[in-house]
Amino acid sequence: MSALSDQLVTFAILAYLVAMISHAVEYALGNARRRYVVAQPARELVGAAVGGSGGTITKAPDPAPRVTGVEGRPVGQARIAGLVAVGATVVAAALHLAALVTRGIAADRMPWGNMYEFVLTVTFVGVAGWLVVLAKRPSLRKLGLFLTLVMVLLVATAELVLYVPVVPLVPALNSYWFIIHVSTIVFSSGILLLGVVPAVAFLMRRGYEAGKRSFPYTLAKRLPAAAALERLTFVLHAFSFPVFTFAVIAGAIWAEAAWGRPWGWDPKETWAFISWVVYAGYLHARATPSVKRNVATWIAVVGFLTMLMNLFGVNIFFTGLHSYGGLS
């Protein structure tokens, strides 16, 4: 079972790679369409209206602008590449889930016992969240390039750096709080990590819309409108922040039972605190009209970096009570 799980992880990474490449192909082919777009300013307008409303997120949105034969072959191919990318992402997510399930069966517990399993679960939540977003707003598909890039990096890091064989839980983790605390942490971390995808895309797209044509901004040419990206960034963060808050509180309750104090500024706790404060800062900044939306979004990106520190850095660089990563 455990060997099967390891293989599934490898296949999942490959599938993410395929998805990433397909997205890149879609991108490249999409760029080839530029001439047509210039020739048809009306198309740009449609695109802007779809994304620009920014308010219709709960409604089933208009499908991606319809591709007509007039626009030529590259567009059709781009669309196919995009659909292949989505298909590959779904396959990757399924493999990813299967890897988690087999790992859980092999260990006879929830697969969250060490950092390897933890990162694997968090990234799965991220990709599942992405698929939900995609189902609701197919027009955001192009963000998949960033998402699959993040997935390949994180899952491959997990497999190459963090891998540990299956072992049972140490008694300190053996508590129902384990399930409550870790599942919510995993869930919220996954969504928060996912949040960086539209956040970065927004920052690039915003620059692009403001007329910047230098390197990172040009990438944003084919992205959805900035307002829609910003909105998605907010929705993801606003949704996961209370879950993260709950998870931290549950962790404190557990820490009281296990270590005799709800909060002890152990490195993991310290970084959870830092992430929480940074994300609270993001929500504040976004609620403040005098703070520009891109400043607020930068705060969300900083929050993402603190989450990475939480996931990887703390277990690698520091020792503390939470050092159950299994690395030595």
């Binding site: 500024w265 970084w271 830092i274 404060v277 940074v278 609270a280 504040h284 403040t288 603190t306 703390v314």
Partner: peptide, 20 residues
């Protein structure tokens, strides 16, 4: 609200040495 933001940010930064 701006001050609150700055203070929140400072709080996060100030906590870093506590883990390092």
């Amino acid at each position: 609200m701006r001050t609150a933001l700055v203070l929140l940010f400072l709080l996060a930064v100030a906590a870093v040495p506590g883990s390092v």
